[in-house]
Amino acid sequence: MSAADDNDKGLGGDDAIAAEYVLGVLDAVERQTAAQRIDSDANFARLVDQWDVTLAPLNLGYQPVEPPASVKQAIDRRLFASTAQTGPQRSSLWHNLAFWRGLTFAAIAASVIAVAVPLLTPPPAPVETIRYVASLAPQQSDVHYFAVYDASQGEIGLSHVTGALAPGRDFELWVIEGNQPPQSLGVIPGGQKVLIPVSEELRRKIAAGAVFAISLEPQGGSTTGAPTGPVVAAGDLRDI
């Protein structure tokens, strides 16, 4: 290596630290500091993500090696120790599929119907009407929404269950289809029950299996076209 070109300008500031974090050259303390900033500083987190994307093709240098079966058993013990003996039965409410189905249908009967009815009353509800429901369950938050999507009306009815919004912030609704980037359905208006119109283009994309997610954004919503804040609630659409 020559020192002749060392006066050239290299990376600087947060961009350099993000690159060094992704490259893996920082020492233990510097890495810890960077990891904390990823959690607390959305701009820094985005720089790290961009460097991850830039250098990701190097991942092909890693050869797959089958791990021993004992590793998965140890993971299951660590995560699901209380349910390990019960096989497919899940004791935790959040892991219980029957609970989810029950909750979803109970919610339709009890509360979401109030959102769904105005969507359905004007036309005489044709037989081919396809409705989907999603429970947008809290993700490390207490934010919980129920969503009903009526394909024939092109509107999403949202019912706010729990979770207050901090001043100066907005919840933004996203739809994720497969591995496509999330697409915004807009900032969620305040209120217990709200309707969000869906553009013709997005209507074609929303089908059973799509995932709805709600992120916490600055007031007015994300300006980047992608979620910038943490995902506070998410759930996938199921037909009813």
């Binding site: 992704v22 987190a45 993500d49 961009q50 991850d52 994307v53 990701a56 991942n59 890693y62 993700q139 490390q140 996203w174 994720i176 591995n179 980037p181 999330p182 997610a213 992120s215 992608a226 979620p227 910038t228 804040g229 943490p230 995902v231 998410a234």
Partner: peptide
């Protein structure tokens, strides 16, 4: 796993990261 939603990485690249 919820962090994946805000990443621009492909799923396997996110897991490798």
């Amino acid at each position: 796993a919820d962090r994946f939603a805000v990443s621009e990485l492909s799923p396997i690249s996110w897991l490798v990261a």
